[in-house]
């Protein structure tokens, strides 16, 4: 069995009118199937309101599907006895770094999760040290989170999750509130974790440039998975992506337009170097 499997997952919530009366049901997730192996780097793309954040909250049992099942590491996410095991193996990083800091010092914040699991003090200290080294924040371990930049805060949040020794990290638009420098820092840290530690990464984003590094991309639209495939496959379908209100990276768009204009270059170009090589050929 794969690390994370979703079978025909449906999530509905009740829409209420002004006086709290039931106004109808809104289907936020509609028959989603996923199959993710250990060590994968997955990107889930989609415009606002496409259900991608709702889907993310299903992966560590914060939400339960209305219909269908999700298996994480062989456990059903609705199994109340397994809930802490699931949350231990699937860490979550959220959009706003300020709203997920619990400690007044970086070190304390990173120690929060292992303290909750009930690990020995000495082991906690070691895990905190290791996690901070992994995201290159060891020099700031005594600082107050409010003194850090956005990218640094988000890396501390990642370290806080790493200290649980998770098998998978779900990042829900981790770069949406960061400047370009912060974005690069966070994405670099995430890629390193995937490469070096073989941690499964599920990156939820609407920034196409970040999705380029994924092994596989899922594009969501109105609660359904509209497209899936490797970045190269996805980015060669420029028109379909634009229908989902997503803009492809500039290079890809340029290559696409050139190809449409009659230039003989391959489809699905992702980086500037590739485009240069294709044109010079």
């Amino acid at each position: 069995m794969n690390f994370l499997e979703a079978k025909k997952v449906i999530f509905e919530y009740v829409r209420r009118g002004k006086d709290g009366e039931v106004d109808g049901f809104k289907r936020a997730i509609d028959e989603v199937d996923l199959d993710i192996s250990q060590g994968d780097f997955i990107a889930i793309l989609g415009p606002n309101g496409s259900g991608k954040s709702t889907l993310a909250k299903h992966f560590n049992s914060l939400l339960h599907p209305t219909e269908g099942t999700i298996y994480v590491d062989g456990c059903d996410t609705t199994d109340a006895d397994k809930i802490w095991d699931i949350r231990k193996s699937v860490g979550m990083v959220f959009q706003n770094p300020e709203n997920q800091m619990i400690g007044t010092i970086v070190e304390e914040d990173v120690a929060f999760a292992p303290e909750n699991i009930g690990i020995d003090p000495e082991e906690i200290k070691q895990r905190v040290r290791e996690s901070l080294v992994m995201v290159e924040m060891q020099d700031h371990r005594k600082s107050s989170p409010s003194k850090l930049s956005g990218g640094q805060k988000q890396r501390v949040a990642i370290a806080g999750v790493l200290a649980m020794h998770p098998k998978c990290i779900v990042l829900d638009e981790p770069t949406a509130m960061l400047d370009p420098e912060g974005r690069r820092e966070v994405i670099r840290a995430v890629r390193a974790l995937n490469d070096v530690e073989n941690i499964t990464i599920i990156l939820i984003t609407h920034n196409m440039e970040e999705a380029v590094y994924a092994d596989r991309i899922y594009v969501m639209k109105d609660g359904r998975i509209a497209m899936s495939g490797t970045p190269r496959e996805i980015f060669s379908r420029v028109e379909e992506l634009e229908e989902c209100r997503l803009t492809v990276p500039q290079v890809t768009k340029l290559a696409y337009e050139l190809r449409k204009g009659g230039l003989d270059i391959p489809s699905g170009i992702l980086t500037r170097e590739e485009l240069c090589r294709a044109i010079c050929r």
């Binding site: 909250k57 560590n60 914060l62 802490w84 949350r87 231990k88 860490g91 979550m92 959220f94 709203n99 997920q100 619990i102 070190e107 304390e108 120690a111 929060f112 999760a113 292992p114 303290e115 909750n116 699991i117 009930g118 690990i119 020995d120 003090p121 906690i124 200290k125 905190v128 806080g160 999750v161 649980m164």
Partner: peptide, 18 residues
């Protein structure tokens, strides 16, 4: 939500770094 997803479940069985 962030606390819950970091396994917070009250004071029972909680340890301290220091």
């Amino acid at each position: 939500i962030a606390m819950e997803s970091r396994c917070y479940h009250g004071g029972d069985g909680r340890t301290k770094m220091r």
